[in-house]
Write a protein that binds this DNA or RNA. Structure first.
Lengths: 192, 192
DNA sequence: ATGCTAAACTAACAAACGTTAGGTTGTTTA
DNA sequence: TAAACAACCTAACGTTTGTTAGTTTAGCAT
C-alpha cells in the first residue's frame, strides 16, 4: 500500500488515523512523525504547520467527495435512483476511508477561521447536491417532505455514522447496510 | 440560572460548554476555572482530575437520558407510539442540553479505559431500549426491518445530529423537526 | 475570642507541546 | 568533480499544560 505513496501522502494518511484516534488537539507531531517513519522536525519540510495538515486533509477529502458523488449520479434518470446512489456512495466512501471522513465530519471546530470557511463552503456544496435530489423528488414525484435540508442532514448523519461502528468482520456487508438505509429513506419519503 | 447551582454544578456546566467548543484535549483547566469564576488550582477542591470532570459529565448525562427516556415511554401502548416518543425525546433532550449531549456523543475516545467501559455500558442500555421498540414493531406490527440495531443507530445519529445545526431563531421548531423525523422513520418502517 | 473546616488563593513543578535553527546525508545537475 | 538541492536529522526554544504544595480567607460552633 504505502510503497507507491509519496512521503507527503504517508504523513497525511497517518495524520488521518492519528487525528481520528485522539482528535486534532490530542495528537502531537512527534507521534505523527514516528508513525510516518521520520522524526518530529522533519514534518516541517512538507507542511508549514500542524494546522495545515488538518486543512489539507479535510479540504482534499471534501473535494474528492464532491467529485465522486457527482460522477456517481451521472446517468441516474430519476430522483429515486439518484437518492439510492447518493446513499450508497456516502456509506461506501465513509467506510472506504473512515479516517479521512471522520476527521472531516468532526474536526471542523479545530480549523482556523480562514480554513474553516473554505471547508464549510465545500461541505455545503456536497449537502446541496443531495438537497437538489430531494427537491426534484418533491417536484417531480410528490415526495412527502417540506424542508429538503432537514432530510439531507438526516441522510448525511445516519449514513456517515456507519463509519463509527462498521466492522469488516461483522455480519452485515456494506451493500446490505446501504440497501437497508436506502430503503428506509425511500419508503419514508415516497407517497403512500 | 446559575444562582441556585452549586459551584460543582457550575464547573460541570461550563466544562460541557468548553469541551464542546474546543474538545476535551483542546480545553485547559485555567480557562475552565476562569469561566466558572475561580482560579485554576481551585478546581481540584471539587474534582480529582480533568478526566474526572469529563467522566462525571458523560456518566451523569447517560444516566439521565436512560431515566427520562424510560419515563417518556411509559403509557405508550403501541410500538408505533413508542417510536414517536423516542424520536421526540431524543431530539428534545439533545437540544435542551446540547453541550452535555454533544460531549457524550463525541468524547468517548478521550475516556480512560475504566471510565470508557462504564459510559459505553450505559450508552448500550439506551440503544437497547430503542432496539426493543423496533423488535416489538417487527414482531407485533410486521415492520419492514431485519436488524433492529441498524435502525436504532440511524435514529440516534439523525436525531442526535440535530443538536449540531439547530438554531432557536431558525425557521423550524423542535416540534416540527421531531414530527418530520418521526414521520420519516415510521413511514420508512411500516409495511406498505 | 478561639479553633475548625471548607473553599478559595498563589506559585511553582515537571512534562509535553508546536516550532525553529542549523547541521548531515545522498542524489541530481552543470 | 563540484555545486546545488531536497530530505532528513538533532537539539533546543519558549509556551502551555495538568497537577501539587502551601497559604489565606470566611463562616460557624465552641
Amino acid at each position: 500500500m504505502t510503497e507507491f505513496m509519496s512521503r507527503r501522502e504517508i504523513i497525511l494518511q497517518e495524520a488521518a488515523r492519528l487525528f481520528r484516534e485522539k482528535g486534532y488537539p490530542g495528537s502531537n507531531l512527534r507521534e505523527l512523525a514516528r508513525r510516518a517513519g521520520i522524526r518530529g522536525g522533519s514534518i516541517y519540510h512538507r507542511f508549514a504547520s500542524k494546522q495545515e495538515i488538518l486543512f489539507q486533509l479535510m479540504d482534499q477529502t471534501m473535494s474528492d467527495m464532491i467529485e465522486r458523488l457527482s460522477e456517481r449520479l451521472t446517468g441516474a434518470a430519476t430522483p429515486l435512483e439518484q437518492l439510492r446512489r447518493a446513499v450508497q456512495f456516502h456509506i461506501e466512501y465513509h467506510i472506504a476511508g473512515p479516517d479521512q471522513t471522520c476527521i472531516t465530519d468532526e474536526e471542523l471546530r479545530n480549523l482556523e477561521p480562514e480554513n474553516y470557511l473554505k471547508v464549510v463552503a465545500k461541505r455545503d456544496i456536497y449537502q446541496e447536491i443531495i438537497e437538489d435530489i430531494l427537491s426534484a423528488g418533491k417536484a417531480e414525484q410528490g415526495w412527502r417532505l417540506d424542508e429538503p435540508k432537514l432530510y439531507s442532514r438526516a441522510l448525511i448523519k445516519m449514513c456517515g455514522g456507519v463509519a463509527t461502528w462498521f466492522k469488516a468482520e461483522g455480519e452485515l456487508s456494506i451493500a446490505q447496510i446501504a440497501e437497508a438505509y436506502a430503503d428506509l429513506l425511500c419508503n419514508g419519503l415516497l407517497p403512500r
